[in-house]
Design a protein around this nucleic acid. Sequence first.
DNA 1: AGCAATTTAGTTGCACACGATTAATTACCT
DNA 2: AGGTAATTAATCGTGTGCAACTAAATTGCT
Lengths: 154, 154
Amino acid sequence: MPNSTPRRLDDQLCFAFYSVSKKFNHFYQDALKPFHLTYPQYITLLALWETSPMTVRELGSHLNLDSGTLTPLLKRLEKQGWISRKRSDQDERQVNVALTDYALQKRDEVYARVNSCVDLISFDNMDYQQFLGSIHHVMDELDTISDKNLIHES
Amino acid sequence: MPNSTPRRLDDQLCFAFYSVSKKFNHFYQDALKPFHLTYPQYITLLALWETSPMTVRELGSHLNLDSGTLTPLLKRLEKQGWISRKRSDQDERQVNVALTDYALQKRDEVYARVNSCVDLISFDNMDYQQFLGSIHHVMDELDTISDKNLIHES
DNA sequence: AGCAATTTAGTTGCACACGATTAATTACCT
DNA sequence: AGGTAATTAATCGTGTGCAACTAAATTGCT
């Protein structure tokens, strides 16, 4: 309770992440327009291009998304022909999400398009790995705090 | 830095921003729970605690949000007693958004709560200013690209 | 085997975000 | 002054995100 002066910097860090995230979203929305893909749909495909098939839960833990977000998103991807959804025979609670032949064929084309757009961003005079490390440090801190549930007391 | 081969999801800058942004959102959602405020509502109040009143457009340019997002958000803030909305007399196209006495009274309490939560995050062994600078560098790059409309050709 | 606890995906409701459009108002221009 | 362009907020439609809940299937325990 001690400190009631607005802490500009911390708000700025949070707001900076918030703003950059939206800008990246817009950037990818443009880049992916030829394929009619949104950014969340794209990262879903990215995960599947790494490993397919996956259950909804496995996908969710890779992307930090729950079924409430994924189920409708996956239905849209299915309708557009990128993936198939089939209940597992071994465990009927699970749904296996697999890439279609169309998605496998389109992969390199999507990569090429995205890379050509990402190439436009200049990361000069910036230590990319250290930067990524700092972001992950913040991410880990936020995870630790929410695990500890320290926030909920008082 | 970028090459033509697909990069792994975890290595990607955009995914890191996307993930941290969601975690920050969750963090603030917890911190602001006593006030029944969401993070976008909080930053709206933050802007107004700096300058009140503001038109919807002015607010939007501070927060990078358009009226499609702000109008319903402001209606919710109004219903909860934080702000008032009144069409301007000078220019009836504009709507002046002003803090209520309630919001002015609650300001320090909100600050204290947020600060006590932010205190839990440890930014040890991290060059904070350089980090914030890198984030803004990425933000500027993304702005430059979307301004140039380079993405839309090809 | 029988039954409670757990796991999994889906559903619902709410709150952003934003593109596209609309309606009202104001500015501009000759 | 009068008509067109520009500005402003609101509205609509689509797509996330996520908390809370539901239904079905599986696991675990006795």
